[in-house]
């Protein structure tokens, strides 16, 4: 996944990189990294280079839920609790 993929390809891909997820969701790179570390966004790690790959549909859904709940007034800790993370 080192070469930059076409927008159309990303939109159909099963797995995306963090940069691609940034483009798809409009959420900051550092925010996604933080959510990942906190266990809020699902990902898989590739064996050789340990690159994180995000399941596009699930990760986007999760980011949308987090954004919605944060707008509703929940803190990140409360969201973690609610999601059972």
């Amino acid at each position: 996944m080192s070469r930059r993929r076409k927008w159309e390809t990303i939109q159909q891909a099963e797995y995306v990189t963090i940069s691609e997820l940034v483009r798809l969701s409009g959420v900051r790179y550092s925010t996604i990294k933080y959510y990942t570390e906190e266990g809020l966004v699902p990902f898989e790690q590739e064996d050789i280079r340990l690159t994180r790959r995000y399941p596009r549909v699930d990760a986007l859904k999760r980011l949308e839920i987090i954004s919605r709940w944060r707008k509703d007034g929940l803190t990140i800790s409360e969201i973690k609790e609610k999601l059972g993370v």
Binding site: S30, T31, Y34, Y35, R70, T75
Partner: peptide, 12 residues
């Protein structure tokens, strides 16, 4: 990252 995620994104 935590500060960025909390302060730069809309929410509490």
């Amino acid at each position: 990252q935590k500060i960025g995620a909390e302060l730069l994104e809309p929410g509490t």
